[in-house]
Design a protein around this nucleic acid. Structure first.
Lengths: 228, 228
DNA sequence: CCACCATGTAAGTAATACTTACTGACAAGA
DNA sequence: TCTTGTCAGTAAGTATTACTTACATGGTGG
């Protein structure tokens, strides 16, 4: 097993969140983030009211607007804290692995594991934020781009080393990797389904790598764009 | 070229929509659907008000609640009409093609083409509905499942014929196919970006098929689950 | 002519995201 | 010790908006 440090409990993320300027988030802000995170385990964002969030947090409703831009700003902040932890773990693990394929397996494994351990992260990222323009101006989106860049680096290195095929654009390869992972995590996130992360990640990596690896021989029909 | 009938204009869908019981949708309902579709070209669903929809449609606001369950019900109905047209086209094209790979290419090509021609469909499906439980009770979701079943059929036939690998679960293969397509269409949908559908679909199909095809020889490391 | 039903409407209501104006605590400086 | 300023927190609003209710109208069959 090349990824054994994933047996942590459903990490208590966002306990130590910081404000955008670097100052630590005051207690009220932390409580609000924890409250929304808790509520998101049971219902979708739109059906959670600001009154509910503040009631669960035990603070006044107006604090949402003091510490965050608005209700969605609070959501984005939570996502950002998840992403921060996820990125720290995954970049470390990836750089420990050697070779493009091993790194990709590590990435796929780690990402799916994180999604499984953090269903709220899954739901926020896959379902709740991308329909609203403000997300793409948020800190959370910046971190999502960093994640994307990490994949770019792995794939580009793999191409340079002759492991990964060079006849398909980088963006397309990245779409396959991220798209497959997200699709696989979406159904469990929506329906609260359990899944075997080990085998899922293994199978996904196997098939995805099979598709993006450089063909070692010429007997397949892969080189010609289309035959008919 | 195996898919030449896709040069239709951005189809005028939902002009001939029917109510759920089979009776034709009255004029007011049609106008409301067209109005929301128009508005969705410019802003996201949440920031469109019912007052706005009815104003653009030129009918009274209460008609939304007579002909649809609620505001989201109207959204789901629009998506369902898009899906109906899309499914009719794609199932036909797919069944004309022969062989699992040719069918998959047809499916990928046709789906991406439909997404490109119908940006509103893209945005509704990929961004606006899956965050709300009511979607999964809707007619639109039933059609989405039909689309999913179509892929199942292709892949299962491909496995039976020895074209597609059998060592990876069907659900996983399907996630790769759908996930890749949706991820590739997401960025253009969000940012209104143009893209070359021909090359995108070709590249995607090429890599995806490369990953799910049955290995014709044993010289790769694909059979063992993991080596290290 | 009338009963009926479908299409359409005006006016209202409850809920909710967000705002404003305020209080108390605490620390620094004179 | 008084003043000043800042930061955490709050109560009480307001404007918006999704949704409801009760009513009007027009065509159709008997």
């Amino acid at each position: 097993m090349f990824f054994d440090k994933k047996k942590q409990p459903p990490t208590d993320i966002l306990l130590r969140a910081e404000n955008s300027n670097g100052t630590p988030m005051p207690p009220g802000g932390i409580k609000l983030m924890q409250a929304l995170r808790l509520l998101l385990q049971e219902k979708n964002f739109d059906s959670i009211t600001t009154a509910e969030i503040s009631r669960v947090a035990g603070v006044n409703e107006a604090l949402i607007y003091r510490y965050f831009k608005d209700k969605r700003g609070l959501l984005h902040k939570i996502l950002a804290e998840y992403f921060r932890v996820h990125l720290a773990q995954i970049t470390n693990d990836v750089h420990e692995a050697k070779g493009a394929f091993s790194r990709l397996r590590t990435l796929i494994n780690g990402t799916i594991s994180f999604h499984k351990r953090n269903g709220v992260f899954s739901r926020i990222l896959l379902l709740e934020v991308r329909n609203h323009p403000a997300y793409f101006e948020s800190e959370a989106y910046d971190l999502a781009k960093k994640y994307s860049k990490l994949i770019n680096e792995i794939v580009q290195q793999g191409i340079a080393d002759g492991e990964i095929r060079h006849d398909i654009p980088l963006s397309c390869l990245r779409d396959i990797i991220i798209g497959s992972i997200e699709r696989a995590c979406m159904r469990p996130a929506i329906f609260d389904q359990e899944f075997d992360e080990e085998s899922l990640a293994g199978n996904l990596a196997e098939a995805v790598i099979g598709g993006i690896k450089r063909p070692t021989d010429m007997l397949q029909t892969q080189t010609g764009k289309r035959q008919e």
